[in-house]
Amino acid sequence: MNILVIDQQLERAQILETALTALGYAVVIRSPDEHRIYQLVESFQPDVVIVDAQSPDRDMLEDVALTSDRTPRPIIFFAEDDDDTVIRDAIAAGVSAYIVDGLQASRVNTIIKVAISRFEAFQALRGELRKTRDELAERKVIDRAKGLLMKHRQCDEAAAFGAMRKMAMNKNVCLVDIAQDVLMLFDE
């Protein structure tokens, strides 16, 4: 597993890199630049990102949010700031684990495993939400098309739906594709 380590303190970064290497992880890069997380992730494609910082500032959290949106992966923060607002903002930006207690080599492996598990669970929820939104949007398109067919063909809902379903089966396409064709046909 490849890990990107971001830490402005060289000594602390070396301790973390030594611990990670001993656990069998590969550190793809160690960088002091906390404000280029997205660029570093794009360049090196790590499996996990570990950031050790005093306190994440607004710019850093915006970069984390960009990373989480465009190239999602587990992001672990070791920080000294235990302010509730900062922690909430970090989690909202996409941080999988926010550790305040300090960096201890003996805990690194467990923290990585927990962050990966939390990240995977969050990604699964995100996928389900995206799927549900897509299905709802498709349902709305189908309902609008059904309504137009009912209006223009003077038929009931079952007949309109049956006609669209039959057409979808005959053309071997999805029902929503037929519904979109109906919407374009009646230009509404």
Rank of each mutant, 00 (worst) to 15 (best):
S106T: 12
A121N: 13
A26N: 15
L129V: 07
I116A: 00
F44E: 09
I3P: 03
L149W: 06
P56F: 05
I91L: 14
D7A: 10
I76H: 02
R36V: 04
V108G: 00
Q9H: 13
P46A: 13
Y98A: 03
T85W: 11
R107G: 06
V28T: 09
D89L: 08
A159L: 14
R12F: 13
N109D: 13
L103R: 07
D52I: 13
S96T: 08
K131V: 11
E17A: 08
I6H: 02
A160W: 00
V114G: 00
D63T: 05
V108M: 11
A137L: 08
D33F: 06
M169P: 00
I3Y: 08
I111S: 01
P72W: 01
D84C: 03
T71V: 15
D89K: 09
T21R: 13
V108H: 03
D52E: 14
R144H: 15
A92W: 03
L23R: 10
A137N: 05
L148K: 05
Q54S: 05
I116L: 07
D134H: 14
K151D: 06
D134R: 13
I91A: 07
A93N: 07
V100H: 04
L129D: 00
V28L: 09
I142N: 04
D181M: 09
A160N: 05
I75H: 01
V141S: 12
D83L: 09
S68M: 10
L20P: 10
S43K: 15
H35D: 08
A105Y: 13
A145N: 12
V86E: 09
A105E: 12
D143L: 09
T21K: 15
I112D: 03
D181V: 00
D47N: 14
V27N: 10
A65H: 08
